[in-house]
Design a protein around this nucleic acid. Structure first.
Lengths: 324, 324
DNA sequence: TTGTACGCGTTATCAT
DNA sequence: ATGATAACGCGTACAA
């Protein structure tokens, strides 16, 4: 006999009334509540979540899919967790470590009703394959994925990029080297386009030869800068796709005796903790706000509210520090 | 009607036979298997895990409790995940971010049968309170917790510490400064004791004035070294409780123009990736092996096999590089 | 406010 | 090899 039945038996009340007490329904007499609560405590009772989930069809649990947890994704994840908790949802992390099969576990768990919804922070499986899983429950992604089959809270990074360009040009930096991330990514495409359009609109030369790709970490940044130095024509400024790359460039430049910002301006992206410490000019990326929106998206869908992709009212912001 | 029932209806077979096919029981005719499998595919069927768990009383899921995920814990977690997967167990991460209530979620999930067992990587709740949760399922910890109420796969760090001391003294370094982590921790106690006993056994002076505590990160290491320099008598060697601290000390020493290892020897602890890159002499910590043992512990208990704390046959190893 | 009766989706124990 | 039937632990219309 389960503890639940034991409570029913000892209290003399029915299954429904016991259930009401457990779920804090107001339609219970004080006496019933008192008696049943007491027995619950005696028995060290706690509901079996599998049974609850089976019965209600909900787990109140949201899975977070990510390959790794670094500083940037952590900002996002933390805010998401807090928001989810505010709404009574648990979060569990599916850390794939870049392994496709491990990652699929999360999606299969959505399918088999282990989680109510999924937040994709990083994803290594093909978005097109994943698309079909949206059928089993709401999925939201941080970054845009492929053909937008899966909705995301991503913002167009071109907006932030233009801010940086505006800033650099207004300060007189014309020969700007662009340092990108993944060469085929939507963000890179968007940034590159923003740069070219901007330069054209100002009648300034577009410096395609200086494009560099796959610069993610600070050591990538160091290598990238060394590469620049070997190319003859030096940039007046470097615009990076993330703060780490910028930090690598900054330290390598200084190591080579180049003064920042007098001889070289550097602009990062994201406004991470580290950029603050190292006084790097950067673009503030409203990550926390995006995380909130990500949860709201899932929540609305779970609540069966009709929902179109919400209007993103978030903005990038230039943070001027000591590298420009 | 559930898909399960739909399969029963369409195939004409019974509930039991369908279940057998799902669970790959050999006691099914080929024909039955073929027919039922086909219908399962048509229906895009997948078992509801809540129902399965409710029925079997097992989730085949293990929770990993941790405050944060850094390089060191990641080594441990990765190996644990791989091992668990080999044995057919899923793992999910409960990232508490240092919040007690958030962390309790994991323990309550053990209690409410959401996970079969728990691995504690980092823990912010009182071990004494947590002890009672062992009643609901197996719990294993990486580090030792309090009075060993909760079993752990931790090794006595004194063993590794002695290795380092032996090495330093054999190289002629006598005036050794000890840099510890949390002052009240079992590890710190064990290290300090190892140091004092070792020095006494060699008839060498014990240098208590040079003890430093709460040195965790590389910036802590920098500060610690600056502090040493202000104290007059300089150490010949510094022995650290982790590689990061050692790296901080190394960089600060070099910044001050002190040559390593000629004027100052430095030994780290853990043998992290970074220590390899920076050529730091350190103690290899068999973390991956500990992770395996952690899983085996849970697995044996879950399998109802009788189990005493397994004999730890793991060993520390000195890795000599360029800082001694 | 309380109780009855059924459903949630699956496994497991018997028989046959 | 297959099939009834009973768990598993709980929520919830609906009725009282």
């Amino acid at each position: 006999m389960s503890k639940f039945d034991e409570i029913i038996k000892r209290s003399g009340y029915s299954r429904a009334t016991v259930s009401r007490v457990i779920n804090r329904s107001p339609h219970v007499s004080d006496e019933a509540r008192r008696i049943i609560t007491e027995i619950m405590n005696e028995l060290d009772y706690i509901p079996n979540r599998n049974a609850v989930s089976l019965s209600t069809g909900q787990t109140k649990q949201i899975g977070i899919v990510t390959a790794m947890i670094d500083e940037l994704s952590l900002t996002f994840i933390n805010q998401f967790m807090d928001t989810a908790m505010d709404y009574g949802f648990q979060t569990i992390v599916y850390m794939s470590r870049g392994d496709q099969q491990t990652e699929m576990q999360a999606f299969e768990d959505l399918r088999s009703k282990r989680v109510d919804g999924l937040l994709i922070v990083t994803c290594v499986n093909d978005p097109h394959e994943l698309k079909s899983y949206m059928h089993y429950g709401p999925i939201i992604s941080w970054q845009r994925m492929g053909n937008d089959d899966i909705p995301s809270v991503a913002m167009d990074q071109a907006q932030g990029y233009r801010l940086a360009l505006e800033h650099l040009v207004s300060k007189g930096y014309i020969r700007i080297a662009n340092v990108f991330g993944r060469s085929g990514s939507l963000n890179t495409h968007s940034r590159r386009e923003a740069y070219e359009k901007f330069m054209n609109s100002r009648g300034l030369p577009v410096w395609r030869e200086a494009y560099q790709y796959s610069v993610f970490s600070s050591s990538d940044g160091e290598a990238a800068f060394r590469h620049m130095m070997e190319q003859g024509e030096r940039p007046q400024a470097v615009l990076c796709s993330n703060d780490y790359a910028a930090i690598g460039i900054m330290s390598e430049a200084r190591r080579q005796g180049i003064r920042v910002p007098e001889q070289l301006a550097i602009v990062g992206f994201d406004d991470t903790e580290l950029s603050r410490v190292l006084e790097l000019t950067t673009i503030h990326n409203p990550i926390a706000e995006q995380a909130k929106q990500a949860f709201y998206h899932l929540w609305r869908v779970l609540g069966k509210e009709r929902l179109e992709l919400m209007p993103t009212a978030l903005d990038y912001r230039l943070i001027e520090r000591k590298t420009t």
